[in-house]
Amino acid sequence: MQKRLTKSRSNVVLTGTLAGIAEYFGIDPTIVRVIYVFLSFGLIGAPVVLYVLLALVIPAGPRTNSYGHDNPYYGRNNTSQKKTKERKQAEPVDDDDWSDF
């Protein structure tokens, strides 16, 4: 299987471009982002233009669900209802003391 450069769908900060580059080279996306920030300061904004071009040119990665599969129905439970936690009740506050100053 041939490796393709695509935007990341699982590690997105702005467009997933830098994370996609990191996944392509097999390194941590944080390292690529830090290198990008230093290059942006050192090369006076030229990497910003490069980032916009890469964001437009690099295709989006395949859609995956939370289980990491392409098929959205793979591994899904039969219960489609979300369980929500019960909200905690607020405690009454006694604001009679105005001597904060």
Rank of each mutant, 00 (worst) to 15 (best):
D28E: 13
L5C: 06
A22L: 04
V12A: 04
E23A: 05
D100T: 02
K85Q: 12
Y67M: 12
N78L: 13
M1S: 09
R76L: 11
V48G: 11
P29H: 06
K7W: 01
L5W: 02
K3H: 08
V57E: 05
L43R: 10
R33C: 05
D95F: 09
V37G: 10
Y36K: 00
P92K: 05
V93L: 03
L39M: 14
T79P: 04
P47A: 05
D70M: 13
V34P: 04
I44D: 09
F41I: 12
P92M: 02
T84W: 14
I35N: 06
P29L: 01
G75A: 05
M1C: 07
Y73M: 09
Y24E: 00
V32H: 03
F41K: 04
P29R: 01
E91Y: 09
T64K: 14
S8I: 00
F41S: 06
Y74R: 11
P62M: 07
T79I: 12
V93W: 03
N11Q: 08
S8P: 01
R63A: 14
Q81V: 11
F101V: 01
L18Y: 01
Y73H: 15
I31P: 02
G45T: 05
V48P: 00
Y51G: 01
F25G: 04
P29S: 06
S40E: 06
R87K: 15
D100M: 03
G20E: 00
V49N: 06
V57N: 11
R33M: 07
T15L: 06
D94A: 03
N11D: 12
K7L: 03
Q89A: 13
R76I: 09
G16E: 00
L56A: 15
S66R: 15
K82A: 13
F25E: 07
D97F: 08
S66G: 13
Q89T: 12
D95E: 07
T17E: 02
D94M: 00
R4T: 08
R63M: 10
M1Q: 06
L39V: 07
S66A: 15
Q2E: 09
D28V: 06
A60D: 15
M1D: 05
S80G: 15
P59H: 10
K82E: 11
L39I: 06
L50K: 03
K88L: 09
V12Y: 04
K3D: 05
F41T: 07
R63C: 07
N65H: 12
F101S: 02
V48I: 15
R87C: 08
F101H: 04
P62D: 10
